[in-house]
């Protein structure tokens, strides 16, 4: 992996973190629902970059890539469903 690519990914991760924090902190409460989903999408995008580039899963056997990326997307979907079910049964 080239140092230039590592640097670019790290900068993208920092920019996405700043964007997420600004979005969460800058909007007045109660925050619109779309803001929560943008935060989730940024978390998935950042996690995918860490998994594919830093953990080296882009060059790994597909099974491992699918397991980790599947966890990343699946855990956010499960959290969304769990939050909805929790609210529905409260």
């Amino acid at each position: 992996m080239s140092p230039r690519r590592i640097n670019a990914v790290a900068l993208a991760l920092l920019a996405a973190t700043a964007l997420g924090a600004l979005l969460a902190g800058g909007l007045p409460s109660p925050k619109p629902a779309w803001a929560a989903w943008v935060v989730a999408a940024l978390s998935i995008a950042k996690g995918a970059l860490v998994a594919l580039v830093f953990m080296g899963l882009a060059q790994a056997p597909p099974l491992w890539r699918r397991l980790v990326l599947g966890w990343l997307v699946g855990v956010w979907l499960a959290m969304g469903v769990a939050g909805w079910l929790g609210a529905a049964t409260a």
């Binding site: 499960a78 959290m79 939050g83 929790g86 529905a88 049964t89």
Partner: peptide, 10 residues
């Protein structure tokens, strides 16, 4: 994480 999301919903 899922437990946190469920409890927050409740």
């Amino acid at each position: 994480f899922v437990a946190f999301a469920a409890m927050r919903g409740a």
